[in-house]
């Protein structure tokens, strides 16, 4: 009867992933999404060094973005299960509270790994050169950050309870400024002073910069350290708030 946090997480993760795997259409559809962004945004980016350099800058950001979209909506699936009794049934089981959050977040992350692989495969012919070790480390770093984000999304779902529009309203209102401030799709370097300052305070900025450094193969760059700190901090804060919200929820 001895269980572990990892075992518990795998149980939740397995449960969440099962319906996704049974519905391959949705997976294929989600795979195509970042390709649209690539096709529509990459040409807009001002780069002196041509396509290869643009991709080197743009693709890591795009990978972060797909993961962000997926994990920040974790809570939406939860809301539905809160309305039935499925969430309550998981809560009353001895599964560890953080496992309920991490398992759900990981389920959102896994498809984004497939997206990342596809993006890389598609852009290599155009000159994108990811460092293999750096890319793997980058994806792991992304996992850490996105678990934190998933936890916050979970908290938001608990807080907005049965009001879906509140959930989506808050999620969109927070996500897009964070995304833009992080210089994910368009660089903020040429923006006004206040924008650049604000951008420094956005943990996502540091994660994106760390990803770019890692994909470039600059594994020991200071950006990487900053990104790790930012990701771990977001994960820790997210899990703390998430498990606390779960204990206090009156749902």
């Amino acid at each position: 009867m001895n269980t572990t946090l990892i075992g518990d997480t795998l149980i939740v993760f397995g449960r969440e992933l099962r319906p996704v795997l049974r519905d391959p259409f949705s997976v294929v559809f989600s795979l195509a999404q970042p390709l649209f962004f690539l096709a529509l945004f990459a040409p807009l980016i001002p780069a002196a060094g041509g396509t290869a350099e643009t991709l080197q800058w743009f693709v890591p950001g795009l990978i972060v973005m797909s993961c962000l979209f997926a994990t920040s909506s974790t809570g939406s699936n939860l809301q539905f299960e809160m309305q039935t009794g499925a969430h309550e049934r998981m809560l009353v089981s001895p599964l560890r509270r953080p496992a309920l959050i991490i398992g759900r977040a990981l389920k959102e992350i896994v498809p984004t790994f497939a997206q990342a692989a596809l993006l890389i495969a598609v852009t290599i012919p155009f000159g994108f050169r990811p460092d293999p070790v750096g890319a793997i480390l980058g994806l792991l770093l992304l996992c850490v950050f996105c678990v934190g984000l998933g936890a916050l999304s979970y908290t938001l779902a608990l807080a907005s309870r049965n009001q879906e529009w509140v959930f989506w309203g808050v999620q969109q209102t927070l996500l897009f400024p964070l995304l833009l401030l992080a210089g994910m799709l368009l660089p903020v370097d040429n923006g006004p002073e206040w924008l650049r300052v604000l951008s420094r305070f956005n943990p996502l900025t540091h994660v994106v910069e760390a990803e770019r450094a890692l994909f470039d193969g600059r594994l020991l760059a200071p950006e990487v350290a900053a990104g790790v700190v930012a990701a771990v901090a977001v994960a820790a804060v997210g899990l703390f708030i998430g498990t606390r919200a779960m204990r206090r929820a009156t749902g």
Partner: peptide
């Protein structure tokens, strides 16, 4: 303890047997 709540405990997009097995695993 075991608890059967007032609502339905199985996830809508799941299959019953899978949910049962998951539930058993959750209890070790």
């Amino acid at each position: 303890i075991g608890y059967i709540g007032q609502g339905n405990g199985a996830g809508h997009s799941q299959r019953g047997r899978d949910e049962l097995i998951t539930q058993g695993r959750a209890y070790g």
